[in-house]
Design a protein around this nucleic acid. Structure first.
Lengths: 137, 137
DNA sequence: CTGTTTTACGAGCAACGTAACTATT
DNA sequence: AATAGTTACGTTGCTCGTAAAACAG
């Protein structure tokens, strides 16, 4: 499996078209990025850039890899975001108040499925006989 | 950015529902996988598994992250495959023989675009005055 | 005592930055 | 001389496995 960081370096390199600029974008030194590219090429078994007298030129292979690499990076980022977002909902308590017993009975199947989907959120179903008692909570 | 390896560990953990089994699937020790999961949880700021008396239970956050993680892993894998596949085509020489000058003239715009798309593949256009000469090549 | 996960710790490896080197203009 | 990239090298941090510890049945 490829290292995500090297793919990140490649994408920056393809975007910037220069090792120096790509390194600057990623806030790292040129040699470090150069190393990552070399490691990726070793992994792929093919060069991703053509070494010219002045600068580099991205190869077809480099562009092809970068294409999928963007997808991988975006997905990894979404994974982290999804985790944080769901995580913020954990430990929360959802308090649902209803005045009518009938209403509560109707809610049960809905809440059961909800609980299945988000088992880590605690559900509290509160029943009251009058609206007055509800506002006290 | 999350580490791809930790996402790999999480996916295995979600699939297997056990640290021990997941570690076995990935051919690594339980402590190593446990570490990766802990590191991922530090990154996410939320637990991905609930520690029970006997084994673990994946949380909603864990499932959510694993979902996107699969996408990231697949994309990363495709990126490498794409690189290797294109790389194998590099250095290749495509020799196109045509007997008629007219045909060659028609081919030029097509080949030009082809060259733009795959600049690393060398194109040789060979013209012959008779079919006999072509088969000699 | 068995099974499962975590903690501790040491070894190996990979990523990084600084510095030196190469090559081209 | 100046610019762009690579190589060399030492340090830091990460990943891993073995061993030991916590915890529950």
């Amino acid at each position: 499996m490829a290292i995500l960081r090297s793919l990140e370096c490649l994408v920056a390199l393809v975007d910037e078209g220069s090792v120096t600029k790509a390194a600057a974008v990623l806030h790292m030194s040129q040699p470090a990025l150069s190393h990552q590219i070399a490691a990726l090429e070793r992994e792929l078994g093919t060069p991703v850039v053509e070494r010219l007298a002045r600068g580099v030129r991205v190869t077809a292979a480099g562009r092809a890899v970068a294409e999928e690499a963007r997808v991988a990076l975006a997905a990894a980022s979404r994974a982290v975001q999804a985790g944080r977002r769901v995580g913020e909902g954990l430990g929360r308590r959802l308090r649902i108040a209803c005045a009518e017993t009938m209403t509560a009975w109707l809610l049960v199947p809905v809440l059961r499925r909800w609980q299945t989907r988000w088992p880590d959120v605690r559900l509290d179903l509160l029943e009251f006989t009058s609206a007055d008692r509800m506002v006290e909570q």
